[in-house]
Write a protein that binds this DNA or RNA. Structure first.
Lengths: 114, 114
DNA sequence: AGTCTACCCTTGCAAGACTAGGTATCGCGA
DNA sequence: TCGCGATACCTAGTCTTGCAAGGGTAGACT
C-alpha cells in the first residue's frame, strides 16, 4: 500500500500461488500467466517474487515440484499442491476473506472514504 | 497470511490508522480501540505495531501529533490527519479495494476455494 | 544473426508487523 | 494500603516477505 508500483500485500502471494495450483499442475511462468488472466490483468506477479515464494512453499511442504517438458518441448518445473497445501489454501483463503471484509468494513465506516 | 496469529497484512495498518483519524483526533490507544470496535473485534492492533507505524506516518507528513490531556486527565499524544494524509487515505483506500477485489476474484475462480 | 518469447534462478535490500520487553498514572476493590 | 486492571506511552530486535536488478538457457521466427 502507499506504493505507486502496486506491490503485493505481504503474505498474499503464497495464497494466490496455492490457489493457482488447486485445479492443475503448473510451472512458474504458467502461474504468473494464470493469476494475471484470472485477475483481469490486475495482479502481475514479478518473477523475483515468484521463485523465492515457490521455494518457501516447497520448504514448508505445501507444494511439490518435478522437472518435465512442456507441450513446446521446453524444460519446466511443474508444481502441484500437497494435501497439506490444499488444507493451507482453504485455511488461508478463509482467513483472507475475513480479514479483507473487516478492512473494507472499517474503510466504509462513517465518514466513509470509499 | 499463513500465520496463525492473524497478523496484519503489510501496509494495511497505515491505511487503517489514517482512516481512524479522518473524522476525529485520536491518541494511539484510541486508534486501537476504534479499529477494534468498528471491525467488530476482527482487527486487534498490537501496540508494538501501532507506535512505529504512527512514527512512519508522521515522518511522511501524513499525520501530526500534539501532547494533550484526555478527559480523564491523562497525558496523551493526539494525532490528526494532514491534508497530505487525507489525500493518501483516499488513494490508498482505492488501491486497497482494487487489490482486494482482484484477490477475491482469483480465489473465487473455478475450482473455487471460497 | 538478431530478436522475441518461454522458462529458470539468485543476491541483496527495504518495508512492515510482531515479540517481548519497558515506563507511568489513575481508579477501584480487597 | 496494597495490588491490579485499565489507560497511556515507547523501543530494540527479529522475522517474513516482496521487489529490484541482475543473471542464464533454449526454441522459433525473421
Amino acid at each position: 500500500m502507499g506504493r505507486e508500483t502496486g506491490g503485493m500485500l505481504q503474505g498474499t502471494l503464497g495464497l494466490l500461488i496455492l490457489k493457482a495450483l488447486v485445479g492443475e499442475e503448473l510451472h512458474g511462468y504458467g502461474i504468473v500467466r494464470w493469476i494475471r488472466q484470472v485477475s483481469g490483468d490486475a495482479l502481475q506477479i514479478e518473477e523475483g517474487s515468484l521463485y523465492p515464494a515457490l521455494r518457501r512453499l516447497e520448504d514448508r511442504g505445501l507444494v511439490t515440484a518435478r522437472w518435465t517438458l512442456t507441450d513446446q518441448k521446453r524444460r519446466a518445473r511443474f508444481y502441484s499442491l500437497t494435501p497439506a497445501g490444499r488444507q493451507h489454501l482453504h485455511q488461508d483463503a478463509s482467513t483472507w476473506l475475513h480479514f479483507s471484509r473487516a478492512v473494507t468494513l472499517v474503510l466504509a465506516a462513517e465518514p466513509s472514504v470509499i
